[in-house]
């Protein structure tokens, strides 16, 4: 799809009154978005420099310049912090790798006409549409439950009894459930990528005698790169914020084995009521997300410059 980013032929400059009016069209929405998204963020930065604890109402004070980074210092020197960051990264990277492989496989399988393709596609996107907490309830109670779950029934054939994946392999189980939900996401975007490959290119390569492997390496994959980038970066951004599935299946445990950054913030804020430290954790989450967001926006801009994305 060619980019139409250029100003339409009869440019706005030719319509000065309309340019004036345009401000009234976008101002309310943009103002609303700035207030709702930026005010809390500025407050988060402020709170992160206070020692406010809701359990101690008198504590809501600025830390003081001498101990300005106390919350950050406390977090960074806490051994749990490293564990939480590692959990967050392990969860995110594992899911991204698994869903990339699974999503690519499904996209390739679906990228050929056959009877039942629409049905296969419809079935496949369903896990992604499901409310994450409902997916978590489904896996925790109906599939994985050690006594009543469907999996435990099949494990009995193998002589394994009372196996509870969420307890024995908590992180692997969470990764599996999140991946099950996100494979369709990667599949959808890569399938869109495959289908935007002009038939003539594929045909020309085939006439030139390209084998299936050659075709994949030299034609399909290069074309797919930007779709892969967009899919995986976008996915990373959302998996970094994964919360519902952990909340329902493991509550971050056992211990802190499945506590990721959002879950840690939730505990810090709503169990320990520590406003200052939870805010400082929040700033880390924002920084982490922003690293990926910047990469993502760069990819979008680059693709927009080459006219491949509608910016």
């Amino acid at each position: 799809m060619a980019s139409q980013s250029l100003t339409p032929p009869s440019s706005a400059a030719a319509q000065p009154d309309r340019v004036e009016q345009r401000k009234f069209l976008s101002a309310p929405g943009l103002t609303f978005l700035v207030i709702v998204t930026q005010v809390p963020f500025v407050l988060a930065i402020w709170f992160s420099f206070t020692n406010w604890n809701l359990l101690r109402p008198d504590s809501a004070g600025f830390i003081g310049f001498d101990r300005l980074f106390r919350n950050y210092g406390r977090i960074l020197t806490n051994p749990d912090f490293l564990a939480v960051i590692i959990n967050t990264v392990v969860l995110t990277v594992s899911v991204v790798v698994i869903t990339f492989i699974g999503g690519l496989a499904f996209a390739l399988l679906l990228n050929r006409p056959f009877p039942g393709r629409a049905l296969a596609r419809t079935l496949l996107i369903s896990p992604f549409l499901m409310m994450p907490v409902a997916a978590a309830v489904l896996w925790k109670n109906i599939m994985l439950d050690p006594s009543f779950g469907l999996l435990s029934f099949y494990l009995r054939f193998l002589g394994i009894r009372n196996f509870y994946a969420l307890e024995s392999f908590p992180m692997a189980s969470v990764i599996a459930i999140v991946s099950w939900q996100w494979i369709p996401f990667v599949m959808l975007i890569l399938l869109a990528g495959l289908q935007s490959l002009p038939d003539s290119t594929v045909e020309a390569a085939r006439i030139d005698g390209a084998s299936g492997v050659d075709m994949f390496r030299h034609i399909i994959f290069p074309h797919l790169t930007r779709f892969v980038e967009i899919a995986l970066l976008l996915e990373t951004i959302f998996i970094l914020s994964e919360f519902g599935i952990i909340f329902v299946t493991t509550s971050g445990g056992p211990g802190i084995q499945t506590t990721n950054l959002p879950y840690q913030i939730f505990l810090e804020a709503f169990s320990r009521q520590n406003v200052g430290r939870a805010s400082a954790y929040g700033i880390f989450a924002v920084i982490l997300a922003n690293i990926v967001i910047v990469l993502f926006l760069r990819v979008l801009r680059r693709n927009a410059d080459s006219g491949e994305v509608n910016l």
């Binding site: 963020f41 407050l43 959302f238 914020s241 959002p262 406003v275 929040g282 982490l288």
Partner: peptide, 15 residues
């Protein structure tokens, strides 16, 4: 605008 959609809600839940 797109970047605001992607910010982690956990980052601003306290404020």
């Amino acid at each position: 605008m797109m970047s605001t959609r992607m910010l982690p809600p956990a980052g601003v839940i306290v404020p």
